[in-house]
Amino acid sequence: MLSKTNTFTLSTVIAFAFSGAALAQEQIVKLAQVGPTTGPIAYVGKDLQNGANMAIEELNTKGITIGGKKIKFVLLTEDDAGDPKQGTAVAQKLVDQKVQGVIGHLQSGTSIPASKIYYDAGIPQISPGTTNPKYTQQGYNTTFRVVANDGQLAGALGRYAVQTLHAKKIAVIDDRTAYGQGLAQEFTKRAKAAGATIVATQYTNDKATDFSAILTSIKAKKPDVIFFGGLDAGAGPMLRQMKQLGIKAKMMGGDAICTTQLPKLAGDGLADDQVICAEAGGVQDAGRPALDAFKTAFKARYGHDVVIYAPYAYDALMTMVEAMQKANSTDPKVYLPALAKISHKGVTGTIAFDGHGDMKNATLTMYTYKGGQRTIIGVTK
């Protein structure tokens, strides 16, 4: 006859045996998120990281089962510093770690060179912020984005400049990054097609904060609009210096200047309605409650508002996992075809890709700033 002690011991052994079997059925799935968490736009990269992390936390709370196994998602985060060389080094590191999918990179200059490395390894990559058309025009079936591209974004800005602002003379400045240069070139093309004259084309770099020489040259051309292909870290000081030089032109730009941080960076250089910018994404009225709910949850989780890309990183990761569920596999080779055909209802709208990995029916949100706050003008396609 077993003693009470022996009975407890046997019960414990049986319990551990069942526990071990359960643990054996749990599968770790490693997903990566990459963006600039050091450098001038580190806060934007952190926003991206926080959005992806919210998705991971939600998925692990729900308890997802794929292929008969309970999945535990692990997020590997890497800093590419917005630098192409560091971006490719990080990409190779993640390939070596055998990640099963990548959310990133943020900037075109890092996403484009890294995409070749992921493609060669057969690892799906969804960027939450890359807008340069080249990113999805390389023939890589592993490459996707959840935002509009520069052609779509620049088209909307070019039309707005001419048709709504009635701009006749436009000066263009770009920061020579893949993002800034690509956006400026597309905008120039679209603004000319709409009837505007480009009176000046100037170049800077993404680390610059002194634009006085460029702006002094531009001032003599008396432009109605200055288009800046660059980041908010450059747009802020540029707006202050425009005010100092008495330049009355409006500034236009893409999603990288269209952040909640711009008023802080520009200070008293930002007047009401002076900046018109477009974010590569956005929801119509019917979809706004879901996005608003995400923003509320984000603020409760992190103690501050979304900067810009967190919802897109969240949607990118959720889209990737839904593809795994549809394919009933976490193997990149198996779930990749499901990802290409996905239609995921996200907080930023419906995520569905064309044959290149671009968004079908991509939306754009036009913004201005009033009283130091980013204000929606409207959502367009």
Rank of each mutant, 00 (worst) to 15 (best):
T197D: 14
Y118G: 03
A22G: 01
G349P: 03
K360N: 10
K221S: 00
A21F: 14
Q27V: 06
M251H: 04
S343V: 08
A340E: 10
M359S: 09
N6K: 14
V347R: 08
L76K: 07
T201G: 05
K168T: 01
T61V: 03
T368P: 06
Y179S: 11
K333F: 08
V99W: 00
Q284Y: 08
R301D: 05
L48I: 14
G67T: 11
R159M: 12
F8R: 15
G35D: 09
R374K: 15
S19A: 13
I71R: 07
T88C: 13
T368Q: 07
Q125G: 06
L336D: 05
G180Y: 10
A300H: 07
K264W: 02
L94D: 14
T368W: 05
I351S: 05
T204Y: 03
G139K: 03
Q241V: 12
Y335P: 04
Y312A: 09
Q137T: 08
A338T: 12
N60D: 08
P84Y: 12
V13G: 12
L239M: 13
M324I: 06
K93N: 14
A196S: 01
M366Y: 12
F18Y: 10
T204Q: 08
G282Q: 02
T164Q: 15
V162A: 04
Q25W: 10
Q244I: 04
K295L: 03
G155M: 13
D80L: 10
G254N: 09
N53W: 09
D255Y: 12
G63C: 08
T7M: 13
T348E: 09
L215V: 07
D210A: 09
L265S: 13
A293C: 07
A300V: 00
P124N: 02
V199T: 10
Y314M: 04
A220Y: 01
T7G: 07
I103R: 00
A266D: 01
R374V: 12
K221Q: 01
I308L: 15
G101R: 03
D150Q: 12
R374E: 14
G269Y: 02
G182C: 13
K326Y: 00
A154D: 04
T363W: 03
Y314R: 05
E58S: 10
F294G: 12
I126G: 02
N50F: 10
F211R: 00
A280M: 10
A362Y: 09
I257Q: 04
T38E: 12
K98T: 13
A24H: 09
I28R: 10
Y179A: 10
D150E: 11
D273W: 06
I126V: 14
A220E: 12
A52Y: 13
G287L: 06
A200W: 00
